[in-house]
Computed example of a mutant assay.
Amino acid sequence: MPEMEPAVTIQRSAERYLSVREGIETRHCFSFGDHYDPDNIGFGDLTAVNDEALAPGSGYDLHRHRDAEIVTWVLDGTLEHEDSAGHHGTIRPGTIQRMSAGAGVEHAERNASADDSLRFVQMWLRSDGVDRPSYRQADLEAHLDEPEFVLAVAGGHDETAAIDIDRVGAELWIGRIAGGVDVALPDAPLRHLHVVRGGVAIDGEQLADGDTMRIAAPGAHRIIAEGATEVLLWAMHRSS
C-alpha cells in the first residue's frame, strides 16, 4: 500500500527555498523557479506562497501569467501594481488584492517608496478556466481588529467575502490576533496556515513568523496568539 501523507506537516521559515536578486529577497513555500522539488509542488489549490521583501524602488518589470488566481497581502510598505489589461492599484497593509490572469496578462509590481522597504505575501492558485483577466482590491482594515478570522477571498461568489476568485471551494481567512487570545480555525479538508507576524501555539506546537502548517484532514483546531500576531489561512474544500 502507498504511504499515507501525514495529516499535519510543519514547514519552518528557514526550510523555505530562498531566491535573491538585486533589491529582492523571496522565500517560497513550494517549488518555484529554480527551486524544483517534486515532493513539494503545491498543496490543494495552492501552487505558490511567496514571502517577498523589496528594497526601496525595486520590483518586477512586466512579466506574463496565465491560468492563475494571484492574491497579494501587504505586510509593510506600499506596492504599486499595473497590468496589460489596464488595471492599476496601490496596495498597503490592510488591503487585499486579487488578479485573475485568465488566458494571459502581463503585470508589473514595484515598491512605491524610495525610502521604505516593502514586504508582502503573494499566493497563487489554479484557476477554474476564466478567459478574461480581471482585477479587484478591497480594504479590510476596519474589520481586522475583531478577535476572529475575516473572510478575505472566496471562490463561488460567496457574498460574505471581500473579494471573489475563480477557484470554487478556496477561501482565504485573515486574522490579526491579540496576545493570549484563543481562536478556532475555520474547518475544511485542507488548510494552509501561515504565520506572517508574531507566533501561535497550535496542537502542542509553536509556530513563529514565517512558519507554516499544512493540515490535510477536517477537524477542530485552535490557535493561541503569542503576542500580537497576524496569520493567513487558506481553507480548501477540494483537493485538485
Score class of each variant (00 low, 15 high):
M1K: 07
P2R: 13
P2W: 11
E3G: 10
E3I: 14
M4I: 13
E5P: 08
E5M: 12
T9N: 05
L18S: 03
V20S: 12
G23P: 01
T26H: 05
T26E: 12
T26D: 13
H28I: 05
S31M: 05
G33H: 01
G33T: 02
G33A: 07
D34W: 08
H35T: 11
H35G: 08
Y36R: 14
D37L: 06
D37S: 01
I41H: 07
I41Q: 13
G42N: 10
F43L: 00
F43P: 04
L46W: 04
V49F: 06
V49A: 09
N50F: 04
N50Q: 07
D51P: 06
D51C: 02
L54I: 09
L54N: 06
A55T: 10
G57H: 05
Y60G: 07
D61L: 11
D67K: 08
W73A: 11
L75T: 12
D76W: 10
T78R: 12
L79N: 00
E80W: 10
E80G: 11
E82C: 12
S84C: 05
A85Q: 00
A85G: 12
G86V: 04
H87K: 04
H88L: 12
T90D: 04
T90M: 11
T95N: 10
T95P: 08
I96C: 03
S100A: 13
A101Q: 02
H107V: 01
H107F: 01
N111T: 10
S113R: 01
A114V: 14
D115C: 05
S117A: 15
L118E: 00
R119K: 03
R119I: 00
V121M: 09
M123N: 05
R126Q: 11
D131S: 15
R132H: 12
P133A: 02
Y135F: 13
R136D: 14
Q137I: 04
Q137M: 09
A138Y: 10
L144E: 03
E148V: 08
E148S: 14
V150L: 14
G155M: 00
G156C: 00
H157N: 15
E159H: 10
I163R: 01
I163C: 09
D164P: 09
D164L: 04
I165A: 07
I165L: 06
V168W: 07
G169W: 08
D182E: 15
D182K: 09
V183D: 06
L185A: 09
A188M: 07
P189F: 00
R191D: 02
L193Y: 07
L193E: 02
V200H: 01
I202V: 15
I202R: 06
D203T: 08
G204Y: 06
Q206T: 15
G210T: 02
T212Q: 11
T212K: 08
I215W: 00
A217K: 15
A220G: 06
H221G: 06
R222S: 13
I224K: 12
E226Y: 02
G227C: 03
G227P: 10
A228E: 15
A228W: 09
T229D: 03
T229K: 05
W234D: 01
W234L: 10
A235Y: 03
H237Q: 14
S240V: 14
